[in-house]
Computed example of a mutant assay.
Amino acid sequence: MLTVDYDRLRVGPGSKVIDVGCGAGRHSFEAYRRGANVIAFDQNAAELADVDTILQAMGQAGEAPESAKAQVVVGDALALPYPDGSFDTVIASEILEHIPDDDGAITELIRVLKPGGTLAVTVPRWLPEKICWLLSDAYHANEGGHIRIYRADQLRSKLTLGGLRFTHSEHAHGLHTPFWWLKCAVGVDKPEHPAVKAYHKLLVWDLMSQPKLTRVAEAALNPLVGKSVALYFEKPVTDGPAS
């Protein structure tokens, strides 16, 4: 289940990509599949071990071009261990809402992006997230949970003030919003609740089968209640010193 548009990010063979806060690796896998040289970066070493296993299996199965490279790196998003301008594309999907010093993380995302490069940031959308918080403290008030709710214009300003040029925004995962509202209403610790199980079964079916009916439904729901908002940016190419 992807939240970012790789065509909009211009990810392809030879692109240098870092997926910051990669989690289970979904965006890293797609970048690798498209032929990029990708770094799956996260602070969770155990989760990264699983990501590495899948990346290696993809390579062995020929699911990525032979020229593509992929590695996992354990580290802190507030101190990315790379020189300025290291990556053609930076992806930070659903991580900033977890980080107390989000300004520090944003500074690092911008720093390691090459001039002319592309960046995608996604966070939970304000209205769906606000309703989840109102329905359930357990949804967000836990170790490593969500500590803030962004408005898209607020987040956009944080990145443009850092020198990036905003290019596009879109919403995603409209079918998932009612699922999370339902989970929060009945209790996020009750995955066996009949209604939750039935809705989860629907989401799995949609993910695996991609039927036209649910694709049309999600396209209609995304502008209204899409669970995530994705913001796209480019780093301007500045002229060098006059000769």
Rank of each mutant, 00 (worst) to 15 (best):
P81S: 09
L175W: 03
P13H: 06
T214S: 14
T214E: 04
W180I: 13
I54T: 01
G226R: 04
E143D: 02
I99D: 06
A64M: 09
A152N: 09
E63D: 13
E108L: 01
H200G: 13
N222T: 08
V72M: 01
I95M: 10
Y232A: 13
L155W: 07
I131D: 00
A49P: 07
L155G: 10
P13Y: 09
G62P: 08
P128Y: 00
V121E: 05
P115Y: 05
F41M: 03
D7H: 09
H146R: 04
L202P: 06
Y150N: 14
L80A: 02
V112K: 01
D5T: 02
K197Q: 15
T107L: 10
T214G: 06
R151Q: 14
H171R: 14
T238Q: 13
G62E: 11
W205S: 12
S28K: 00
V123E: 14
T3Y: 03
P211T: 00
S136G: 06
R148V: 12
A172H: 06
F41Y: 11
F87K: 00
I147R: 05
A64C: 15
Y199R: 10
G117D: 04
P83M: 04
A220Y: 05
F166S: 02
K212I: 09
P65M: 10
M1N: 10
N222R: 02
D52C: 14
K197P: 07
A45E: 15
Q60E: 15
E30V: 09
R33L: 12
R111T: 04
H193D: 11
V225E: 05
I147G: 08
A195L: 15
H200N: 15
V196P: 02
V90N: 02
Q43E: 11
L164S: 03
V216D: 13
A24E: 08
D50N: 10
R156Q: 14
G145T: 03
R125E: 15
D101S: 12
P191W: 03
T177K: 00
L164K: 00
P211W: 02
G144V: 00
T177I: 04
V237F: 04
D103R: 09
G163H: 02
T53L: 09
S15G: 12
A230E: 07
L231E: 06
P241H: 03
L203Y: 04
L159T: 06
A220E: 10
L159P: 07
W133K: 03
F41L: 07
G14K: 04
A57S: 12
G144L: 01
H98F: 13
V90F: 05
T214W: 09
D102Q: 10
V51Y: 00
L207H: 07
V188Q: 01
G163P: 08
H193F: 06
F29R: 00
A57V: 08
A77L: 15
V73S: 04
A242S: 15
G187H: 02
T3M: 05
A64S: 13
S15Y: 05
E97I: 15
